[in-house]
Nucleic acid binder design. Structure first.
Lengths: 115, 115
DNA sequence: CAGTATCCTGCACGATACTG
DNA sequence: CAGTATCGTGCAGGATACTG
């Protein structure tokens, strides 16, 4: 039970997967559309992350053979279902943002004065 | 809005924070109790992660001056509230574990035969 | 356009030793 | 017991160049 949980925690926690999920929430997008949507991701990491997510069954990759080639990525049913808990976490973060910032400020203040 | 979300995503996604939250879910624990409960965490990472969580206001640290010294860690209200979305994510993982494993198997099979 | 291949760097993390 | 300090290193991930 602990192992699969850690596995998806790693997915969710990694730098890009959640952003990709969000980029795909409204339907299929092409490789470079996703890249532009995220903005700061390197080509390498986009390829790698998409491949990982495809492997996990979160994303479906469809190649339209044309010139130039076109590849669409979209969330699978599984991928969409993951959005729910992930968005819950996002809501929690937004809801408690101020509280966290205040805690950090207080903590850093204490530490700063001690030094 | 995006920045604080990434921040707690990093917390949740990091290797140890969630395990610590779980170790503390039933009340305060001492430093070495947590260490033993997790088992594989290094002393350094436990210190670091606890400090980070304390900074974020998720954990409260209380020193009982005695010989030998005793330090208790416990989840704050904020820390406890984080458990809810985190446990949702855990439930999702457990619920879809089989599906993910199957997807990975299928993916790796395809890749293996291609090579 | 949608990748792959290669190189390079920082830093996350573990191991170990020391301290109040 | 509950830490800090220091060192070593594997690998995550960026930059860049090449390809079908």
């Amino acid at each position: 039970m602990c192992w699969p949980v850690r596995q998806i925690l790693a997915r969710v926690g990694d730098k890009w997967s959640v952003l990709i999920v969000m980029a795909l929430r409204n339907g299929p997008r092409r490789f470079n559309e996703i890249k532009r949507a995220i903005g700061t991701i390197s080509q390498r990491m986009l390829t790698l992350t998409l491949k990982g997510m495809e492997r996990d069954g979160l994303v479906r990759r469809t190649v339209i053979p044309s010139k130039p080639p076109r590849v669409d990525y979209e969330l699978t049913e599984l991928g969409h279902s993951l959005r729910e808990p992930v968005e819950q976490l996002g809501l929690w973060a937004i809801e408690h943002e101020a509280r966290i910032a205040k805690a950090q400020e207080a903590f850093d203040g204490k530490e700063g004065s001690a030094r």
